[in-house]
Every structure is written in structure tokens, then in C-alpha cells.
Write a protein that binds this DNA or RNA. Sequence first.
RNA 1: CGCGGGGUAGAGCAGUGGCAGCUCGUCAGGCUCAUAACCUGAAGGUCGUUGGUUCGAAUCCAACCCCCGCAACCA
Length: 581
Amino acid sequence: MENLNQEKIFIGVSWPYASGKLHLGHLAGQNIACDIFARYHRQKGNSVLMVSGSDSHGTPIVFKAEELGITPEQLVDSSHKEILETFEKLSLLYEKYTSTTTQNHKEVVQNIFLVLKELGYLYPQKSKQYYDEKVKKFLPDRYVRGTCPECGALDARGDECPVCGKFLKPTDLIDPYSTLSDSKPILKETEHYYLDLKKLEKPIGDWMDTQSKHWRKWVREFSKGWIKEGLEPREVTRDMKYGIPVPIKGWEEKVIYVWIEAVVGYLSASIEWAKSIGQESKWEDFWKDPKCKHYYFIAGGNVPFHTIIWPAQLLAYSEKYSNDSLWDKYKLPGESKRESLNLPWDVPANKMLLYKGKKMSKSDNTGMSVDSLLEKYSPDLIRFFFVRNAPENHDREFNEKDFIDCNNNELVANIGNFINRSLSFVNSKFNNKVPQGQLDLDVKESIESIFKEVGKYIEGCEFVKATEAILKLGNFANKYFNDKAPWISFKDNLSECENTIYNSIQLVNALRILLKPFIPQSIFTLTTLLNIENEYDANIELTETGKVSKSENNWVFVPLNPSHIINDPKILFAKIEEKEL
RNA sequence: CGCGGGGUAGAGCAGUGGCAGCUCGUCAGGCUCAUAACCUGAAGGUCGUUGGUUCGAAUCCAACCCCCGCAACCA
């Protein structure tokens, strides 16, 4: 069925920091939800561009590499590979997953830096910062420690005192020392560029007022709070060699700060994608068509970058298009249209996944790695669990008992049980042949309304509710089967029995189509069990060929014909015994 | 200390002035094609605390307690 109302959907997914493996927070935060959203839209026949990549620059990477005795490049390379492997195991599928280390990214970042500078949004300013003479480095805030001026605690960090919670500047600390060498750092003058966010406060505030109505409440309130407090100019360069050099004469020893650099990846990865499919200007379809909606899947902590700073950069940069000399001088790769860049449509950020009451993070090792979970559980269960229990509006505690309950009560007892009892019945009583029948009115209505409901929820980024709706159909299906009692009518009213089973098989097929974006691997198996051949699937085409060639709406219920022969049933989801814990 | 979110049954949550609800779990009974679902019934709450407004407060107001996140790379 050709999709006549094809929409363009751009999806930017938060760039994982390339300093180690993925942990459960990544899954709860963004990496599962984005994939379900993308798969749904591809299935619907929409044109999707989902990009992300490994955030490969920044001070922590340099320090971690030093600690491991390798170069930052080696650390970043191995992390990038590990991330890609994990994504593949979980069937997380991007149009482009790249890294901030590419030449293309560097070009785009420097282009944006220079344009913002020419437009007067970046200006240089001198300041004094702590410098460690032993290791010959300027120190990031958290690498300076000392006594808290507020409560007297020793070992307070340069950004915050862990004892009294006071927010500090490194220069507030009494008796500061460098965590890199334990020596006393000196204050040394340095010069940096600053992004003049103050100048952008009004336009960003206005944009947010009109745009944020459909955002999650907490994302909206949080972002508006930032604007209300007032935006201050922020440093955008660093005294470091590893990273993207500041493209200005005399600044060769400095790099562009990662917080302004990494978000540019959304644009540079789109440009890289366009190149890789051999259509250099294709990215403009997604970035310059005002009808293309931009969604950013991120985790809580990154909200201000995506609702304030990145939009501010885009808004400022778009002034290039009404300036003849800048337009001539600073074209992005493949750029042909003199039209401004799209701002975020929605930023469906999730809150934190907590483990034993604390947030998971790479830095303190409380986060369980995704790999350790993959050793014990199926990728589809992991996908389903993290979208079913996503911390969309509240922080959420992770525990393995809930994980097993989700498998046993929802995937096994609800969905799996219904599929199995239906297929087994066709197998044992009808020799694998779908019996004659017609769709009952209530079955038809249930299926149609659930399709609408689930679609509406996914499009509104309410994934927990989407899973609830699907489980509701599973519940309806089980009840239908039960109420109709085909095991009784088989003995005394064969045509009624046939009709019941015909309807049950249609419900199985409806669940199959609805669950495709969520648990693709199991659904692939179910498609085989139902002996459905030659069904077009945009996500499978993208997996296999790297691109989608058709625009077909397959988010529709298609009944299976009577007399269709299915294969022998097989258990789709295995029950997990609690004692295995 | 600042900003934001939260505290309702064992767990997860809904509920913005009118009998405290939903999903899952627990217990008992019925039914049984199925990895067991479905039906009926039951247990389980000081709605964080205290005070106030009101005929009436989970809901509005005030003060306080507790948990989580953020402040520039920790999703």
C-alpha cells in the first residue's frame, strides 16, 4: 500500500561518550525508544533519517587513555567498535551512526564556529585558570580539589562540594590541589572564545514559548527555568591538543569545547549520510524542509543542550542565509538551498534510571553494562523492558525482579500464551490450515482502535502507553478465545469453532504487526511461523542494504486468508524461572 | 544555598475540591485449548508530616521532612 502522505522524520539520538561500554542508562535514556520510534515511522512508510555517533573528544577521554597507557584515538576506536557491536545485538538501527573523529565533522564544526564568530556570537576574552605545572595542563573544574569555603570539608571538587552541596568555582577552594599530580596549581592567564548566549536569550525564549507546548512537562518546565534564570556567555574553547582545532590563526594550540562541538554532530552526521548514499545535498531534505519534524532522543541531563544551546546555535547560524558574503564564503558540504535550518520539534528526554537508589554512570561504575544483561537475556526482552518501563516522567529504579516479571507476565503469559494457544489449536485440530471464517465485529473494532491508539502514542513519544495498549489487545485476545471456548465448539459446532480460530489467527497477526517496531527479532520468527512470505519490511531492507527503497504504509492490519497453511508452532518467549537469579 | 521533578496498597503508577482508583503481584473458588488464560470473590492505604481554608482536601494555602536530578560532558 503506497504511502501517499509520506512524512519526513529526523531523529537525533544523544551521542554516547566513547570512553567505555554502554550501560543500562543508555537504554533507559534514549537508545531503545529512538529505535522503536524510527522503526514505526519506517514501517508506516515515512522517510526517516536517524543519526547518532560516538562522542569522541573531551578531557575525560584524554585522561582515561593516559590512565590505560594508550592514545585517546585507540580508546575511542575500541569504544566505538564495542558500542556498534552492542547496537547490532539489540537490533538498534540507524541511517548513520558515526563518530566525532571524522574529517567531515571537523569541517562542519569549524564552519559553524567561523560563521558564529563572523556574526558576532563568538568573542574572545582573557581569564585566569588553574594550571598544573607538573603535568603542564590547564585543569578542568573537577580536577581541582581543596577545602570547601562554605562548610570546611576537605576534598571538595572545583565544581561542587560533595558534603554541603554548595556549587563552587575552582578559585573558591581553599588550599587547592591538582588531582593529576597532587601539586598546588597556579593561576595562569589564558584566552578563550565565548558564545554570547545572552544575545540569544530572547529569540530562544520566544521560540520555546511557541514550540514547547507538546513537550513533556518536565522537559518544558526545566528548559523554561533555565531561560528564566537568564543565559550567560559560555566558554567554547579549551587549552588542549586533542579535539577539533580552533580554526583561527594563533589559536592552533586550542580546541573547540565538546559541549558545543558534539551537538553539531546531528548536522554533520546527516551530511555524512547524504555523501554515503551518493546524494550530497540530500540532507537538506531533512534540515531545510519546514515540514520535516526533528526529534531528539536524549537523557535527562542533556536537556539544556538540546532545548537551549543547540537551538541557539542553529538559530544564530541561520542568519548566514540572509547574508550574501557569508553564504558565498561558508557553504556546508553539499549545501545548495539558501534556507534556514530546522529547530527541534520535540525533545522526548527520559529521566534517570537508578540502580540501588543512585544514578548509573560510567564514572563511578554503578552502571551495569548492557553486555552483562545480553549474556543472560534476549535482546527483545531487553528492548521491551526498557521501553515498557522507561523513566519518561519520573526517575525509576532498576531491578532484575521487574525484568523477569515483565518477561513472564507480559511477553510470556499475555502475548506469548495467546499466540501459542492459537497456533497450537490450528496445528492440532486443523492440520495447520487457517479455517474458514469472518472477522467478528468486536474483533475488527478492537484491532482497528488499537492500531490507532498505538500509532498515536508512538507519534506522541508516549512509549509506555503504547506498550500498555498492545498488552490490552493481548488481554482482549485471550479473553475472546476463552469466552468463545473453541475446544467445546469443536465438538458440537464446528463452523463456530472455525470462525473463532479464524479470528484468533487474525488477532495473532495484528499483534505481530503492532509489535514489529518493539521486538523485531521475535516478530521475524513469528512471521516465519505464520508462513508469511514476501512481506515488505522497510526496517529489514534498511538492515540488509543500508537504505529504504519503497514508501509503503505497513502500519495497517492485513488479514490472513482462510486455507493459508502455517508452520508448526514454536515457543516465542521462554519463561524465566526466578531461581535462575 | 539556587533551579527542576517527585513522595498515593507489596511493586509500578493514575487521580487538580465530592464514596481512594488502575496495572502487576498475593490469597480462595470456578473453568481448562494454552508457557496457562479467563471469570468471581478477598486481603492489603494515616494519600510524606504538621497546621490552615472549606459543608467537604490526595487535590487549594503555609511551614517543614525525605528522595532524585542539574549547574557544562556523567544518558
